[in-house]
C-alpha cells in the first residue's frame, strides 16, 4: 500500500521550539507514513526534538498552512515543509 511509504520533509522550528530543539530546522526529517494523523506526527517530532514539555501548546503547519485539528489525517509528500508553531505573540 502506498500510504505506508515513508517520506522525507523539511522541518522548521521557531521561538521556544527552536531553542529547545537546539536547531532551527532540518532538511531531512523522515515521516514513516505519507498519510498520517497530525497528533501522531506531532508526537514523533516532539519526542525526537526534546519538545515534550511544550507538546500541548504547539501546533504544526504543513506547507505554510496551519493544521489546527490534531485528529485530522494529512497527506505528506517528499520535500514538503513542516513547521512547529508555538503560541504566536506578534503585534
Amino acid at each position: 500500500m502506498s500510504n505506508t511509504d515513508s517520506v522525507r520533509v523539511k522541518l522548521l522550528f521557531f521561538a521556544k521550539s527552536r531553542e529547545l530543539a537546539g536547531v532551527s530546522g532540518t532538511d531531512d526529517f523522515l515521516v514513516p507514513h505519507a498519510e498520517i494523523k497530525c497528533s501522531e506526527l506531532l508526537d514523533l517530532i516532539c519526542n525526537r526534538y526534546n519538545l515534550s514539555i511544550i507538546r500541548n501548546n504547539v501546533i504544526l503547519a504543513h506547507n505554510e498552512q496551519y493544521c489546527a485539528d490534531l485528529s485530522e489525517t494529512i497527506r505528506i509528500r517528499n520535500g514538503d515543509e513542516l513547521a512547529v508553531i508555538p503560541p504566536i505573540s506578534g503585534g
Binding site: F14, N57, A83, I85, P86, P87, I88, G90
Partner: peptide, 25 residues
C-alpha cells in the same frame, strides 16, 4: 500571523517567550 516575541528582563538575564491570549493554542 506566525510572529513571536521574547521579552528580556532586567537582571539575571531572564527572558520569556510571550503568548498572545488571542492565540487559540
Amino acid at each position: 500571523v506566525p510572529v513571536w516575541k521574547k521579552e528580556l528582563y532586567d537582571g539575571e538575564g531572564s527572558s520569556e517567550w510571550k503568548e498572545n491570549s488571542e492565540c487559540t493554542w
